[in-house]
Design a protein around this nucleic acid. Structure first.
Length: 860
DNA sequence: AGCTTTGGCTAGCGGC
DNA sequence: GCCGCTAGCCAA
């Protein structure tokens, strides 16, 4: 064993290893980088052994038990000899000798061979402000104007560039690097895409001659996204991943009000708000960490898995590699070589069982039982691992010494525990230690939180291991194992559902590892769960040949009421949870509904939230729901809608040029999705749009196809299509919820369709004559008609229709423009219409505004 | 230029 | 209005 280290990186043919002495002073030790491939000793004949021993490309060949360890001169040589690229068949592939772990980097090799662990890093948070005149795509060319560094203790520093010269910038960054001597890990929001590359590029350009590779660069946003997936509540905190939004959601306060697109002007004017803003950002990072503890959690995972606590270490494949390679080393097991993207053909497999929901209306007294850590428990029970798989006939009796996965017909050896089960059991038992330790500690104390984070870390890693086995990008990929894991889950769940039905329990829903039952008492249900554990599962597992049993069904909770809208979409109000009575006003459990979706407008989430509250309060008549609906409808159609209520946010998941059908010619491409069209518009005006960008937009006209969608900052110049918002965005998801809860009530009339029929020809003229009567404010109506009739040049053939909306005093005019296009004015003379008539509409708006002002003045 | 999985719902879009 | 398709987000 080796002392824990702080950091390590490859430098040529050496591994640079960093530690600190008792005083905290850094020191480096260098060791030879090992570029290794393992071969099965049985695959190496005498001639090959001689060849490998004497080759000038190798520097080590030794047989250790059933494995031969082959050390190469350098990584290039190793790659040449082990990796087949296209026509270029590698030395070992041409010989038909399979290599193991031949892609493993020298740092990973070093950790694996030495068993060294990672020490808790000294953490800090950084933020840079750079010259705003340089576009994002050339950010590395932009001068650093200021930096801020904050740590978990007292340090909170900010420094500003003294003058616009390389010398001054060198001094600025030099001071930063000096400060970094005291730290090992740096967090920056979106650091991977911005702060870090800028920092490295400027350091390089200014020839500062410092070692940049020692630090662990961790993208705080990437960290947050990965960890928060498990705990995000409503859609609010998913809408934007900008620091300001996350800070506001998590901390209740955001960034300084400062125009970050004019940092240069601010710097030139020696504006003190620049450093203040800069520092505030770094402080927010520390506060987010204080609140979430995600950084501590990840550092624990890094420790457990022996990955460096940087952005790369966030990847489950890296974590599993770190853990498994070392475990394999200890047990004399080697894993296959896996070069990046070599000979990959998609290999999909069957996943979990999801039951069609059978509850109707509001279900009462619904018990939920679920399998504890279902996939890890299955892996342990069937001793599933790539090396314990056995070839045997899926029919007939289960062969002696094996166990069978009934749905896939795969077999595993019951003998010595496989390496995957060992890893999981290790993680689960280590987790148990912290679970128990936490239970002993006083709740809320730092030690209590720390124990909780450790326990969560082990759980997260354990669950991710199944996914990695199912990932064809991983060296542990084994479709037979992965599919057998999921299908054993299907077998257990379906059998449980069938057994429940036989015993007259009504199972109304089930998904992957849980069943929902509504027609029995607590004691009856508890008895059923106990019977499953004591009788059903042991019998089933015996039949399958399993000699281990880690499968456990647990009575998790009971809903006093539950509405299932569709599979994976429901809201439930707890009666009790894990034996504890729920508090009266406890928040309901909401799954899959628009309420939880980051791509739903706030109007949508809020309306659904209101309905959920009403259901929770136990209202059974339609009136209170209708009142709220009417209020919402009036609001959507009449009121000034704040931008945050109507903005729609969707992510860009791939480079923009890859969107469009079939990837054919540009002409062949179909229309792209709405948010992609907006993304293009943003890029055209010079904004940075790439993978991961969240596009904020609104729908200006949903009545045409493709829809007219605009970047959110154009809201105000152009109004939203209020009919579209109500019908498609806002009401639809709520309608689905209400119809699920009250299937016998009519939730269509008056709400489902609110868009007026298109005005045309004579009819419109007739309606125009009624303007004075229909309008809630006759003066307004008259004013508009005057306006329209006087603007002959623009509105050659005016056909105006006045339409009232149910439950509202909404007044809408449809105006046929000279071009033949149709514009829509609402009672406040705001306009919506299709994009190609925007110019015309602008003209109309200006005129309309003048008319409104004249009308308002006349009231005085 | 690095990658945890499958299942399910919903919306937009184009073609029929 | 239905269907096939792409796409995003969420449940497990």
């Amino acid at each position: 064993m080796t002392d824990p280290i702080l950091s390590a990186f490859v430098d040529g043919n050496q591994v640079s290893i960093w530690r600190r002495d008792a005083q905290g002073k850094l020191f480096e030790r260098r060791e030879r980088a090992e570029w290794v491939a393992y071969l099965r000793a049985a695959d190496v004949d005498e001639a090959l052994a001689r060849q490998l021993r004497s080759s000038r490309f190798t520097r080590e060949f030794k047989v250790e038990g059933s494995w031969a360890r082959l050390g190469f001169k350098d990584d290039y040589v190793r790659s040449q000899m082990c990796r087949t690229r296209g026509e270029n068949t590698s030395f070992f592939d041409s010989k038909g000798v399979k290599t193991y772990e031949a892609d493993v980097g020298a740092v990973r090799r070093w950790f694996t061979d030495t068993g060294a662990t990672i020490e808790k890093p000294r953490r800090c948070y950084v933020d840079f402000e750079i010259d705003s005149r340089v576009p994002f795509s050339r950010k590395e060319d932009a001068r650093v104007l200021s930096w801020a560094v904050v740590d978990d203790g007292e340090t909170a520093l900010v420094r500003v560039l003294a003058e616009e010269t390389n010398g001054a910038e060198g001094d600025l960054l030099g001071e930063l690097w000096e400060l970094m001597e005291g730290y090992d890990q740096v967090l920056a929001w979106s650091g991977d895409g911005f702060d870090f590359p800028v920092w490295w590029a400027r350091t390089d350009l200014l020839n500062l001659g410092v070692e940049t590779r020692r630090l662990h660069y961790l993208d705080h946003l990437a960290l947050f996204e990965r960890m928060n997936k498990m705990s995000a509540e409503s859609g609010d905190e998913k809408q934007s991943m900008k620091l300001h939004s996350i800070a506001t959601a998590i901390l209740g306060h955001g960034k300084d009000d400062f125009d970050a697109s004019r940092t240069y002007e601010s710097w030139a004017a020696k504006d003190p708000r620049l450093p203040k803003y800069n520092l505030k950002d770094a402080v927010l990072l520390r506060e987010i960490e204080e609140k979430t503890g995600f950084g501590d959690l990840f550092n624990t995972i890094a420790e457990v898995c022996r990955v460096l606590p940087d952005s790369r270490g966030l990847l489950p494949t890296q974590q599993m590699d770190g853990y498994m390679l070392r475990l394999g080393q200890e047990r004399g097991v080697r894993f296959p070589t896996k070069f990046y993207k070599e000979g990959l053909k998609p290999e999909q497999y069957e996943g979990a069982h999801v039951m069609e929901p059978e509850f109707r209306g509001i279900a009462r007294g619904v018990h939920v039982a679920d399998f504890a850590s279902i996939y890890p428990s299955i892996i342990l029970t069937w001793n599933m691992s790539p090396e314990t798989w056995r070839d045997a006939s899926p029919a007939g009796p289960v062969p002696e010494g094996l166990c069978r996965c009934p749905l896939t017909g795969h077999h595993f050896d019951n003998g010595a525990e496989g390496i995957l089960p060992t890893a999981l059991r290790d993680l689960m038992s280590k987790r148990q230690v912290w679970v128990e330790k936490k239970a002993e500690l006083p709740p809320g104390t730092e030690a209590w939180h720390a124990a909780g984070r450790k326990s969560a870390a082990y759980k997260v890693v354990g669950l991710a291991f199944y996914g990695v086995v199912g990932s064809m990008f991983s060296r542990y990929f084994d479709k037979r194992v992965a599919e057998s894991i999921t299908q054993n889950g299907v077998w257990l769940l379906k059998s449980t559902i069938a057994a429940a039905a036989e015993r007259s329990l009504r199972v109304g829903y089930g998904d992957t590892d849980a069943i929902f039952v509504d027609n029995v008492s607590d004691t009856e249900f508890a008895a059923f769960v106990a019977w499953c554990n004591a009788e059903l599962f042991p019998a089933m597992l015996r039949e399958a040949g399993c000699v281990r049993n880690e499968v456990k069904l647990a009575y998790e909770k009971k809903f006093r009421s539950l509405v299932i809208v569709a599979a994976k979409s429901y809201v439930g109000f707890w009666e009790h949870y894990k034996g504890k009575q729920a508090e009266a006003g406890a928040k309901p459990e909401i799954k899959g509904l628009a309420y939880k979706r980051g791509d739903a407008a706030l109007l949508t989430r809020r309306l659904q939230g209101e309905m959920i509250d009403l259901i929770g309060k136990g209202h059974l008549r339609a009136e209170p729901y209708r009142e709220a609906l009417d209020r919402a409808l009036r609001h959507v159609l009449n009121d000034q809608l704040p931008v945050e209520e109507i903005v729609i946010v969707k992510g860009i998941s791939k480079p923009l040029h890859e969107y469009g059908k079939g990837g054919g010619d540009d002409d062949e491409k179909g229309t792209e999705p709405a948010h992609v069209r907006v993304a293009r518009a943003l890029r055209e005006r010079g904004e940075h749009v790439g993978e991961g960008t969240r596009v904020e937009y609104f729908v200006a006209d949903g009545s045409v196809s493709p829809q007219v969608v605009l970047p959110i900052d154009q809201y105000g110049d152009v109004d939203v299509d209020r009919f579209y918002y109500w019908e498609k965005q806002v009401y639809k998801p709520t309608q689905a919820l209400l119809e699920a809860a009250f299937p016998d009530v009519d939730w269509k009339t008056g709400y489902e369709r609110v868009r007026p029929p298109k005005a045309r020809g004579r009819k419109a003229r007739v309606l125009e004559g009624q303007l004075g009567f229909e309008a809630s404010t006759p003066a307004a109506g008259a004013c508009v008609v005057d306006l329209l009739e006087s603007e002959e040049g623009v509105f050659e053939d005016i056909k105006a229709a006045v339409v009232r909306y149910p439950g509202t005093k909404q007044l809408v005019l449809h105006v046929r423009l000279a071009s033949g296009a149709l514009a829509v004015l609402d009672s406040r003379l705001r306009v919506s219409g299709s994009q190609r008539m925007l110019a015309e509409i602008y003209g109309l708006r200006l005129a309309a505004r003048a008319a409104t002002e004249a009308w308002e003045a006349s009231l005085l």
